[in-house]
Write a protein that binds this DNA or RNA. Structure first.
Lengths: 221, 221
DNA sequence: CCTGAAAACGAACGTTCGTGCTATATTGCG
DNA sequence: CGCAATATAGCACGAACGTTCGTTTTCAGG
């Protein structure tokens, strides 16, 4: 059996793997997933081209791994924190709020990773494109589901179409990211935030008989 | 003087020039402005790499010329027709309406040329990026100015911030283009149209004392 | 210490890219 | 016809790309 020995050696390999992908995600958010070059990535991380290449087997493998790593970061930085809020209007608000924080704070150096990746691969068929589309569908689903849940909790106007509103919110987010990257226009985020929360507020409903400060989990900080 | 002779020869050159750029615009809207390769463009148009190259002197020259050609098409297909409507609410409505027609009708094979180009070059400094940003500013300016003019004509709610609304409209347009390209989601355009015109309608005002059918220019067709 | 597998390396391959340099058609003018 | 100018073609270059291959380093377990 090689379990113990291989595991030990593999630990080092995984560390490299992770270090590579951390750099890859940032490089790709600036230069694009295709502009992300194996050679440049290797020198950026202080490794040989072939050594790095062996980790992924192909460029497509590297791109897929990079997309997956970016998704993990997005889940950690946006989705998980938002899900600490209780289901319903609170979570919906948090989801939008945290997204803007995330995009503004340059979690990825070149703005929202997926906005860039989706534009780049939208007319380039293959597994990378398929995975990106899948992830974006997840995000859309999350948004519209949060809206639905707010409606079910009687905290949100039941006549609005969740998918329609999710589309509008996502468009404003993409528009903001777009204006920030192209114009360095910081105001774009103010505008998008304003537009999103104006819509959310306009459709918000007080819960009819709930207590004034309902069972919201409150963090220590 | 070389005027006559050179002009005659130049006529042939200009014909090639135009034919090249027509193909370049479509190729670039699919593959991106960087993916637009001199070699591929040359074979696509049945010309030698060097022969084509001589027309533009550099890849950047080709990219700039392609951007300019795309702008011309956009002006012809969107701006000019919209400007046949009279200044004010009519023109604002036409501007939005025609934009959706334009994006849906695949005037550029790969969706809105500028949405793609802006995403691609937003973190790639240089003359190409600068020109694209300039053109997008033109478009923003046109949108917000049309809103202002509708306000001045008392046809639109004077309390809305033209720049804010222009930002929202543009975001919805980009979001629709984005969803169409990534998901092949035809509904995205229906959604975006709905969202845009809901906002326009919500803020529209009847002119207070104007005749029922004011001096609108009516086309023959 | 020795072994053997995992990890990283270095050099090379074939391709494609942008870009020069030189030569050949084409065409109106004198 | 020959001239001058323009358009296009042919060819070669250096660089960068993804990829392959054989070798060397590293290190836990026997």
């Amino acid at each position: 059996m090689k379990t113990a020995a291989s595991k030990a050696r593999q630990a080092q390999g995984d560390k490299s793997h992770q270090a590579i992908l951390e750099e890859a995600v940032h490089l790709a958010s600036v230069e694009g997933l295709e502009g992300l070059t194996i050679g440049r990535l290797a020198t950026a991380i202080g490794m040989s081209k072939s050594g790095l290449f062996a980790h992924f087997g192909s460029k497509e493998g590297l791109q897929l791994a990079t997309v997956e790593a970016a998704r993990s970061i997005f889940v950690d930085k946006v989705i998980a924190p938002a899900f600490k809020a209780e289901k319903g209007l609170a979570r919906l608000n948090r989801l939008c709020d945290i997204w803007f924080d995330y995009a503004e704070s340059h979690v990825f150096r070149g703005g929202c990773f997926f906005a860039a990746a989706a534009s780049e691969f939208d007319s380039r068929p293959g597994r990378v494109r398929d995975r990106i589309a899948e992830i974006m569908r997840e995000w859309f689903g999350l948004l519209s589901q949060s809206i639905s849940e707010a409606q079910e909790a009687k905290e949100f106007d039941p006549t609005v179409d969740p998918v329609q509103l999710a589309f509008e919110i996502n468009s404003l987010e993409i528009g903001a990211n777009w204006a920030l990257q192209l114009f360095d226009d910081q105001n774009a985020f103010k505008r998008a935030r304003e537009a999103v929360f104006a819509r959310l507020k306009a459709h918000s409903r007080r819960r009819k008989s709930g207590p004034k400060a309902p069972g919201k989990k409150r963090k220590a900080s």
